[in-house]
């Protein structure tokens, strides 16, 4: 077990040294010796924020904080565990010229089919629903994404507003409650 003696060191030195040590190892235990209650508290908080188990004991040497790093409790989720939600709020990518914006959007959605790491969900809202309905130029790419396991949702209110309710060609209709839940469950929501 790695031992770090932080006695006599001022805040935030013990936390920084411990964090550095934890980050450098895949799993295992670190014992940190500190000499004040502030450092003890900060180390507990550090372990909690990572979701690691820890124990604290005191003896004549000082306060011993032992933090156990376990791979799967790491709050820095592995890349493939990330839950990316992309909210597409327009049929244009970016603001400026709409013709360019629509071209960029086609290019963007095609790129999603090619990248290795897929989003979990694509949510189409407002004019974004023009992309999931009849006449859209990206249906082929969206079909590929759906086959690759990406969930495709279109806002029902928006389909109704644009008179596209019976023109949906890909994915399913969703309401705002589901959209809010999907966004809150995600580790990263990207708004386009």
């Amino acid at each position: 077990m790695k031992r770090i003696d932080c006695r006599g060191l001022a805040c935030p030195k013990p936390v920084i040294m411990t964090k550095k040590e934890l980050d450098s190892m895949i799993n295992g235990e670190v014992e940190v010796i500190v000499d004040n209650q502030g450092a003890r508290e900060n180390l507990s908080k550090l372990a909690q924020s990572y979701g690691f188990e820890y124990s604290i004991s005191e003896d004549s040497e000082g306060i011993h904080v032992i933090i156990k790093k376990t791979e799967n409790k790491n709050s820095n989720l592995a890349e493939d565990e990330k839950n990316i939600v992309i909210a597409i709020t327009s049929d244009c990518f970016g603001h400026g010229d709409d013709v360019l914006g629509r071209t960029l959007m086609k290019s963007y959605i095609y790129s999603l089919t090619e990248v290795e790491k897929k989003p979990k969900t694509l949510i189409f809202v407002n004019a974004g629903v023009k992309l999931t309905t009849e006449g859209s130029d990206v249906l082929e790419s969206l079909k590929i994404l759906e086959q690759q396991g990406v969930e495709i949702l279109s806002c029902g209110t928006c389909l109704n507003f644009y008179n596209l309710s019976d023109k949906l060609k890909i994915g399913s209709v969703s309401n705002m409650y589901t959209i809010v839940e999907k966004m809150h469950e995600s580790t990263n929501t990207i708004k386009i």
Binding site: Y108, Y110, S111, D137
Partner: peptide
């Protein structure tokens, strides 16, 4: 597209 060719815009 006006000639009905099946094309896709890509980066």
């Amino acid at each position: 597209k006006s000639r009905n060719l099946n094309i896709q815009i890509i980066p």
